[in-house]
Design a protein around this nucleic acid. Structure first.
Lengths: 193, 193, 193, 193
DNA sequence: AATGAATGAGAATTCATTCAT
DNA sequence: TATGAATGAATTCTCATTCAT
């Protein structure tokens, strides 16, 4: 009987790839570095991905999906922008604490012109943003002049950027407290209202 | 006497480097590609920069400086957040139209963990943000709970991100109109107030 | 299981490297020349050596070690300078015949200021020379005024230089005969006595 | 009227070239390094030499000539091997003290298979060695079994090698004293007798 | 299923040389 | 006479990818 695929192994590769790409950029993270750090043979990942690019695109898709699901999920559970945005941002910060690498990875690749989200995911981003906007406009929590882009920015990109500024220590601050999270929520609500 | 330095040549190299780095990432833009596209010898740029990294760091510094000067300049000419932010955002969009590559370049590299702004420039970012916040808080145009980071984000990062979402067509829109610019201004003022 | 390492391959690289370095100098023997002549991929040798310099230093160490072992060995088997020196020189000429490249390689690199023997090997050179001198002085076969350097020169450097003058045809002679070897031995014994 | 050639300038280039070649090897000493250290334009030396190789060959010829002239000169002034060899070796050590670089330079290049003395100079080397040998054999100061090569070695190569071992600190000694010089003379006379 | 030896195209960088001034 | 800007071939080294085992 054939051996089963060792899923922890592949997981290790993915995690390591994200770490190294965040730290050293796409070009700076070599397959052999990733393989060595993940304690896996160099040729291993070619059993699952056709190329390095494939792997990274897949990783980006997966991570972005996971973040979008936070929004989708809360959108279905609450019906005010206040609740949804609060929930999303709290969850994002929670993940930033538990898995900084994942958040950094999305942050880095989303701003890279060499990586594009898949059409399918772009559509899904547009749709969530639209539905949120509609809800907000009905509720009076979002100005009409706010665009879908801005909704997306405030729900996802801004908190992610905020965390990354802290990761980078751009303003000589690292990490965050409860109060910072509250401020980010307040900031978002204000921007949209 | 030796030949005079051909200054347009170096300018060509810098411009081409930014274009290719935006399109293909730091690692994806090779020196030989840059040189060929700029119609310059491969060894040419090493007369001015010690390495590819040097060149790119210098370019980032230069571009960021140019953007920061917009803020500095308007800060000295106006005394309401409304006027300053309007001025900054209008100028940013103007540049985005005239020189999309420059704006894309800053956008891409600022989000890359492998490139860090120089300490000197980070300090200058903090200082401008602080001065703007102080002014705004005095004027009643900025909430006290808004952090310096958020000021910087709304004055620079958000408009730059907005333009780049349009460049990328993330929401199936490309380019912008007068009304979009007005909205971005309104969005920023709201977020800070 | 991965492929087994082809050991003859590395051997080919080493041999070729020595040949080319002897003929064209360290700088004149390029990695790609070596690889092509050894029928090996350019990147191959980097699996074993971190750099070209590493390879060459290792080669020098190996070759020098091999020559020093001749002396060590004969020192333990005989107890007159006459016997030891005769043995060493005969063996050196034998190797010069069988492997001229090895002898040329040592000759070239030992005289190059950019390559230094490792401290460890320098010590071992000093020690052998010292032990030989002590034996010779006791036996009355070596003058007291002869230095360790001169012992080393006569046991190793002089025969190697002699062979290389013949390789180079500096005096319009190439190769050597039994009588030449005898003369070199006689020359050495006289010099030390 | 045209400016005269600035001979000190060319002299500076030659001296610097020798220094750098000794320290870093032929390939390691670049034209631009030499030019910068000699405070001369990069293109300057091409007014006198067709190529880097030309320069170095010329330098080797010049330095070797200068050393051979010591022997020629003393050969005409004295008529015993003892006097000639003593004179030569003393003069060589004197030069080694005054101009270590020159002695190192000859040492390095003579042992390099990529540089060959010119036929003309090789002949002159052979002739001096022959004349000395004949004189020595007549005088009874040189054994008949000694070859011309060995004469040359003892008159030039050995002292040069001796000095270079000291320069390199191969035996943990640097520099030399009067007594060392006497020993080298004694060593040479013994070897030839 | 997994390994890691081997490849070779392509990367960044250097440098001898040329030539307009 | 002398300069040094500019060149581009060649160099060392890296790395994604393949494939025999």
């Amino acid at each position: 009987m054939a051996r089963a695929i060792d899923t922890t192994k592949l997981e290790r590769v993915k995690e390591t790839a994200m770490e190294l790409i965040v730290d050293r950029g796409y070009g700076g993270a070599s397959i052999s570095m990733i393989a060595k750090k993940a304690a896996v043979a160099e040729g291993y990942l070619y059993r699952f991905y056709g190329s390095k690019l494939d792997l990274v695109n897949d990783l980006l898709f997966e991570q972005m999906k996971s973040l979008l699901e936070i929004i989708e999920d809360l959108f279905h559970r609450y019906d005010t922008i206040n609740e949804i945005l609060s929930g999303v941002i709290k969850e994002l910060f929670k993940r930033g604490e538990a898995n900084p690498t994942h958040v950094k990875f999305v942050y880095v690749l989303v701003h890279d012109y060499s990586f594009r989200l898949k059409e399918e995911q772009r559509n899904s981003i547009f749709e969530v943003s639209e539905r949120i906007k509609n809800l907000g406009v009905e509720n009076g929590e979002i100005r009409n002049s706010v665009s879908e882009e801005e909704v997306f920015i405030m729900f996802l990109m801004h908190p992610v950027q905020y965390m990354n500024f802290r990761f980078k220590g751009l303003f000589h601050k690292t990490g965050w407290e409860e109060k910072d999270i509250e401020n980010v929520i307040e900031f978002g609500l204000n921007a949209l209202k």
